[in-house]
Design a protein around this nucleic acid. Structure first.
Length: 574
DNA sequence: GCCGTTTTCGGCCCGACTGTTTTCAGTCG
């Protein structure tokens, strides 16, 4: 079960989509979208709010507040159910295909009776789109490409959502009878960017396995039971995500956790080492191969110690040389969330953020940051309606706020610039010089060819006022591939000019991605791990940025926002 | 459907791009 705010957000967004599909008032649709976003990013749990308090959420008026209250009380909203009944759910699913929006999704349903992605693909192959209004010669290719993009993730879900489900499952099992230890393992523990299924382990005595499994199948998350045994049980969530639970004897905990964390290739390496040492490694323990005698394996540290290896952090277990590095005693000391002294890419409601400057700054202070940068969008992203005057007025507010926080939290006034097709950014040099920090990102012209993208990025990197390149490839997981660019040339330029590359922590971005971080650090590039938060709750997304950085083997020294402010300032103003 | 130092009606983020058209709708950020 999603958190109430997210459930309500999804519900309001669904209603907004339905309004669009059925040709309802576009402003009404936007009102629901705005409210959905506001609820999703609202710091308080909406299930604890009455109708009056709900109206305090920006963008939520009487009508929407009543619907939320109705939903929280009864689990459904009559008006939404009614609209829902007029459009098959698959029609809305069509909108998730890039280039297909509400209008053409409805055309497909009305004219061709297409109401699922599969039916659409079939219709394309049967050439039934030809002649359909709004669907020209390119439409078929674009649709098939879009579907392919969606399916490239193979039905996988984003790390952020999987981690939430994993943590909820663990929280729901720790109280089960006999549960001595409980943890999630698998790709969630390795913090891979997308997740196919969630693996959870419980250490419990054999006689309690039944009780643990029953507790598992009775979790609210479990919509359907796929397999029900004493060692392994699998359920599926309402959205179709499979969760596997394994119950192990407590003595096997370390071996089980190691085995089920993977990755498979990492396990093959460790088993090979075990073999060479006359040992056998399985999910049940480490054994003396000849006498089949179990050796202590209650913790992962013990398992690795039997192999003469130090404990290897899960984020490194991808068979990317971590076992060899461990054997040489050269594992990196990975950057951790506690190492971050600040966030260098965040937004407020001056542009598309949901929270005020004051709310964001206070939340940053609560996170224990030493410094915090406010980097709202620049004018060339036209929809943000930014002006130089607004930016300067915000700077005054930031400076005044900085006086209030003093040494407790240092505030930096920055901006997120737009890199245009030529590599130019929004303001002239003298205006840029007034910022403490400039992040520059690509927000348009994703389709330029490789040479043009590379030229444009390098030009921005060479701009002396640009300190950080935000979400460098601008990919969106499951939505959009990154821009086509010569990354080696980009990394070299960053190293040469002292421009940092962002590891953006938004679960949909994680950009640079782990493998690119690995490549970039070979060039001696510096990195910034940022949340790109548009709401108070999103400040916590740095967690995913840190995980991605770890998967790219980053150490604190390479990450500029682990540095003390004086050193960071020197980097920003060379 | 929301909102209000232009306030209870009449606005609502606005422009670019793509692919479809033959002057523009749909989609996206």
């Amino acid at each position: 079960m999603a958190r109430p705010n997210e459930e309500v957000e999804a519900l309001l967004q669904e209603y907004a989509d339905l309004i669009a599909i059925t040709g309802g008032d576009a402003f009404k649709q936007r009102a629901y979208e705005r409210a959905a976003r506001a609820v999703g990013g609202y710091p308080q749990d909406v299930s604890g709010l009455d109708a009056k308090a709900l109206k305090g959420i920006p963008g939520v008026g009487k009508s929407i507040a009543d619907k939320i209250a109705e939903y929280l009380e009864t689990g459904h909203v009559a008006a939404i159910e009614e609209t829902r009944s007029t459009v098959p759910p698959g029609v809305r699913e069509l909108m998730s295909i890039p280039t297909l929006g509400p209008k053409r999704a409805m055309t497909l349903y009305r004219e061709l009776k297409v109401s699922s992605v599969d039916e659409l693909v079939a219709a394309v192959h049967e050439d039934r789109l030809t002649g359909l209004k709004g669907f020209g010669p390119k439409a078929a290719d674009n649709i098939l490409h879009g579907v392919e993009l969606m399916r490239a993730s193979g039905g996988r879900i984003l790390l952020g959502e999987a981690l939430r489900i994993a943590e909820e499952t663990v929280a729901g099992l720790v109280a089960a009878t006999g549960c001595e230890r409980c943890a999630y393992a698998g790709s969630v523990r390795r913090m891979k960017e997308t997740i196919g299924d969630v693996d959870v382990l419980v250490a419990a005595p054999d006689e309690d396995a039944e009780a643990v499994m029953t507790a598992f199948t009775e979790l609210p998350t479990a919509a359907e039971v796929v397999v029900h045994g004493l060692k392994k049980t699998s359920v599926r969530t309402a959205k179709g995500l499979q969760i596997d639970l394994r119950v192990l004897p407590p003595d096997s905990w370390g071996a089980g956790l190691q085995y089920f964390t993977g990755a498979q290739q990492h396990n093959i390496r460790t088993r090979e080492i075990a073999q060479r040492k006359g040992l056998k490694l399985s999910e049940y323990g480490v054994f003396d191969a000849e006498r089949d005698k179990p050796l202590p394996a209650r913790t992962e540290e013990e398992v690795y110690a039997h192999l003469d290896l130090p404990w290897i952090p899960p984020t490194l277990r991808e068979d990317r040389g971590e076992v060899a590095a461990a054997q040489r005693g050269e594992l990196p000391t990975l950057v951790g969330e506690d190492d971050l002294r600040g966030d260098l890419h965040t937004h407020t409601d001056l542009t598309d953020g949901l929270a005020s400057l004051e709310e964001m700054v206070e939340a940053a202070a609560r996170r224990g940051y030493a410094y915090y940068a406010v980097t709202d969008h620049a004018p060339e992203l036209k929809m943000q309606r930014m002006t130089s005057e607004k930016m300067l007025a915000q700077r005054d507010r930031v400076r005044a706020l900085a006086d209030r926080y003093g040494r407790r939290l240092r505030l930096l006034h920055g901006t997120e610039l737009n890199i245009d097709p030529e590599g130019e950014v929004d303001w002239p040099a003298d205006f840029l010089a007034g910022f403490d920090l400039c992040v520059a990102s690509v927000h348009s012209h994703f389709g330029l060819d490789r040479a043009a993208q590379t030229r444009r990025l390098i030009r921005a990197i060479e701009n002396p006022h640009v300190n950080v390149i935000g979400h460098p490839t601008t990919r969106k997981l499951g939505r959009r591939a990154g821009i086509d660019v010569d990354l080696d040339a980009v990394f070299a330029a960053c190293a040469r000019t002292g421009t940092a590359l962002e590891v953006n922590g938004h679960p949909e971005r994680l950009d640079l991605r782990d493998e690119h971080v690995l490549l970039a650090r070979r060039h001696g590039v510096r990195f910034a791990i940022d949340s790109d938060a548009h709401a108070v709750s999103e400040l916590a997304n740095v967690r995913f940025g840190v995980a991605t950085a770890q998967r790219g083997w980053l150490t604190p020294a390479e990450v500029i926002n682990t540095w003390p402010l004086t050193r960071l300032r020197r980097f920003l103003r060379p």
